[in-house]
Design a binder for these strands. Structure first.
Length: 570
DNA sequence: TACCCGTGATCGGCGCTAAA
DNA sequence: TTTAGCGCCGATCACGGGTA
C-alpha cells in the first residue's frame, strides 16, 4: 500500500475495488489515497459522500477496527500496514501489465534456451525460470518481434524499461531482480564466442550498456532511498533517544518473557539486541566499536561499583579494549538486561554459527560478530518509526544542548566522561564512574525547553548539503580530474568555499587516485601484473602525489578480474 | 512472482597526525 | 603552515533466504 501511495498519482477505482476485501476497506483505501494527494479516477459519485461521512478519520478508524484482532502485533507502524495486501498486489501487477512490462517472448527461443542452460550450469539453483522470464520481458520490451542480442545496442530503450519498473508500482527489490537477471544475461552473452562473432560490435555496446545500467541502478536506488528516508531526523537529545522511549515497554516485556523462560520469536530477539546497542550508542554515548569489540570475557570480568554518596547507587563496570580502552558503566537495571540478553538470546544466536563462538558479547542473529552497530540502531529506529539518529548526532546534541544547560558541577563531570582517555579513567576511577552515571541520567531525563528552536536544523543542513555539492562542482570545473592534471591546493579550495575546502580537496584527490588506479588496471587488463611491473609503471608515469599503492592496485585488479574470469569459465 | 528482511561488503566523509 | 595518509564511522549496496 505504501508503494501505491509513493509511486502513484492516479489509481483506477476498479483496481481498488477488485483488491479490497470489503466496502469498508475500499472506502478506507480511497480516502487514504486521496488524503495523500492521489487521484482515484472513474470513481462512482456515491462513494464520495460515504467516504467522507462514514469514515471520518479513516486512519484512526482502521486502527480501532483492526486492533481488536491484532493486539499482539508489536511492529505495526502504520495503520494501513494492517490491511490486506491483496489490493496493492493486484494493482501492482495490473499497472505493470498495462505498462507492457509483463509481456514476454517464448522461452523456447535458442537465445533464451542458451541463457537458461548457462544459468543452470553456473548457478545450479532454483529460481532460474523467473530470471529467464524477467530477461525475456526485458527483451520483449526492447524488441517485441524477436528475442535478440541486438537489444543490447538499444541502451535507451533498455534504460526506459528499468526506469519504468523503478517508477511503477514495483519496489526497488523488483527492479533489482530484473537488473540482476539482465546482468547475468550480459555475462552469458560475453561468455559466448559465437554470439560475439555474429555481431562484433556487441563488445563495445556491452560496455556502454553496463555503464548505463550501473547509472540506472544508482538512480533507482537513490530515488528509493530518498522516498524511504521519510524518517524524521533528530533535532535535540530527546529525539536522538526517542527509539529507547518508544520501545521501552515492549523491550521490558521481552526481558520478562525471556527471564520466565518463554521462547521469543526471531524478531523479538533481534529487538532485544538492537535495544541494547541503541542504549549504549544513543544514551551512553559509547562508540560503535565498543559494541563490536566487547567480549564475553570482559563481560564476565565486570567490576561492581558502589557510590559512597548519599544515593549509594550501584553500577557494573565493563572494561572494553577496542583499539583504545573504554569503560561501559551500567546501572543495576541495565546490568540485568545485559545479563538476560547474554544468558538467553546470545546463547540462541551462538548455536547457529558453524565455526564456533568467537567470544564476542554482541553477536548477530547468525551468531557472528556485529559488523555495523549503526545500521542495527537505524533498523531498530525504523521498526518503531522513531526519529533517525546516529551516535555522532546523539553526541553532538548532548554536547551542544545538554552540556550548555547543565550546572557547573555537571559540566565538569561531562567533561571527564567525554574527554577521558584510559589513563585519565584509571587515575580517577571514582570520578569517572560518577561522570558516566550522571551523563546517562542527564540523557535519560533531558526535557525540551518550551522556547526551543524548532525546525532550524533540518533546513540549514539541507542548504549546507547543496552548497557543498556546488562548491565541489566549481572546483571540478576549475581543476579537471585527469590522470596527469594538477589538483587544487587547500588554499585554492578555500577561495571557492572556506567551509567546504577540506571536503572538496579530499574528494578531488580521491577521484584522481581512483582514476589512476583504473588506468593501471586497464593497462594490464589481460594478465595480472606483478609488484615490480606495477611499481615500474607508476614510476614511468612520474606521478608523485595521489598515487594509488601497488598493493591496492593488485587487490583491485583481482577484484575486477574475478567476475570477468568466472563469466568466461561458465 | 514480488517483496521483505537480515547481513556483510564497500564507499565516502571527516578528523587526526606525521611529514614536508 | 600545508599536504598526504590513515583509520573510524555511517550510509548505501548487494545478495541470499524466506514468504505471501
Amino acid at each position: 500500500m505504501r508503494m501505491l501511495v509513493r509511486n502513484l498519482s492516479v489509481v483506477h477505482y476498479k483496481q481498488l475495488k477488485a483488491g479490497a476485501d470489503s466496502d469498508r476497506s475500499l472506502h478506507f483505501f480511497i480516502n487514504f489515497l486521496e488524503s495523500n494527494g492521489c487521484l482515484v479516477c472513474e470513481k462512482p459519485s456515491h462513494t464520495e459522500g460515504t467516504s467522507a461521512e462514514e469514515v471520518e478519520n479513516p486512519v484512526q478508524d482502521a486502527v480501532e477496527t483492526e486492533e481488536d484482532t491484532c493486539e499482539e502485533e508489536m511492529d505495526i507502524e502504520h495503520p494501513f500496514l494492517m490491511l490486506s495486501t491483496s489490493a496493492s498486489k493486484m494493482s501492482t501487477k495490473k499497472i505493470m501489465e498495462e505498462a507492457g512490462l509483463h509481456r514476454k517472448h517464448t522461452t523456447n527461443s535458442p537465445l533464451l534456451q542458451g541463457f537458461r542452460s548457462y544459468l543452470e550450469k553456473k548457478y545450479a539453483k532454483s529460481g532460474i525460470k523467473h530470471e529467464v522470464d524477467n530477461v525475456s520481458r526485458w527483451l520483449h520490451f526492447v524488441n517485441p518481434n524477436e528475442p535478440s542480442t541486438s537489444c543490447i545496442h538499444n541502451i535507451e530503450r533498455s534504460m526506459e524499461f528499468f526506469r519504468v519498473i523503478g517508477a511503477s508500482a514495483a519496489s526497488r527489490a523488483t527492479a533489482r531482480n530484473y537488473m540482476s537477471g539482465v546482468k547475468k544475461f550480459i555475462a552469458y552473452v560475453t561468455s559466448e564466442d559465437q554470439l560475439l562473432e555474429e555481431d562484433p560490435s556487441l563488445r563495445g555496446s556491452i560496455q556502454n550498456f553496463l555503464k548505463s545500467m550501473t547509472e540506472a541502478q544508482k538512480s533507482i536506488c537513490r530515488g528509493a532511498s530518498k522516498k524511504n528516508s521519510v524518517g524524521r531526523r533528530c533535532t535535540n537529545p530527546r529525539e536522538c533517544q526517542e527509539v529507547l522511549k518508544l520501545a521501552n515497554h515492549y523491550f521490558a516485556e521481552l526481558i520478562d518473557r525471556a527471564n520466565a523462560r518463554n521462547e521469543l520469536e526471531e524478531r523479538d530477539m533481534t529487538s532485544v539486541l538492537f535495544y541494547l546497542e541503541a542504549l549504549l550508542i544513543l544514551q551512553h554515548l559509547q562508540r560503535p566499536s565498543v559494541i563490536q569489540h566487547m567480549t564475553v570475557q570482559q563481560w564476565l570480568e565486570r567490576k561492581q561499583y558502589k557510590s559512597r554518596s548519599t544515593d549509594s547507587a550501584r553500577a557494573a563496570v565493563i572494561t572494553v579494549k577496542a583499539g583504545a580502552q573504554h569503560m561501559v558503566v551500567l546501572n543495576e537495571v541495565e546490568e540485568m538486561w545485559f545479563d538476560t540478553y547474554f544468558r538467553f538470546i546470545r546463547l540462541t544466536f551462538i548455536k547457529r554459527i558453524a565455526n564456533g563462538d568467537k567470544g564476542y558479547f554482541f553477536v548477530s542473529s547468525k551468531g557472528s560478530k556485529i559488523q555495523n552497530p549503526t545500521t542495527d540502531v537505524h533498523r531498530f529506529q525504523e521498526r518503531f518509526n522513531a526519529c533517525l539518529s546516529t551516535g555522532k548526532e546523539a553526541l553532538h546534541f548532548f554536547e551542544k544542548v545538554v552540556t550548555c544547560e547543565s550546572s557547573l558541577e555537571d559540566q565538569e563531570l561531562i567533561k571527564i566522561y567525554l574527554r577521558a582517555d584510559f589513563k585519565g579513567i584509571e587515575s580517577n576511577h571514582t570520578q569517572y564512574m560518577r561522570a558516566a552515571m550522571r551523563v546517562s541520567e542527564l540523557q535519560r531525563t533531558w526535557e525540551e525547553p518550551s522556547n526551543s528552536r524548532d525546525g532550524q536544523v533540518p533546513g540549514t543542513l539541507k542548504e549546507k548539503m547543496s552548497e557543498k555539492e556546488i562548491s565541489y562542482k566549481k572546483i571540478e570545473n576549475m581543476f579537471k580530474v585527469e590522470l596527469d592534471s594538477k589538483g587544487p591546493t587547500v588554499k585554492q579550495c578555500c577561495e571557492v568555499s572556506e567551509m567546504h575546502a577540506k571536503y572538496c580537496y579530499d574528494r578531488w584527490r580521491r577521484q584522481q587516485i581512483k582514476c589512476r588506479m583504473d588506468a593501471v588496471i586497464a593497462h594490464y587488463k589481460h594478465e595480472k601484473p606483478n609488484l615490480s611491473q606495477v611499481y615500474n609503471y607508476l614510476r614511468l608515469k612520474g606521478w608523485v602525489k595521489n598515487v594509488p599503492s601497488v598493493e591496492e592496485i593488485l587487490l583491485h585488479w583481482e577484484a575486477r578480474e574475478q567476475p570477468r574470469r568466472e563469466d568466461n569459465d561458465g
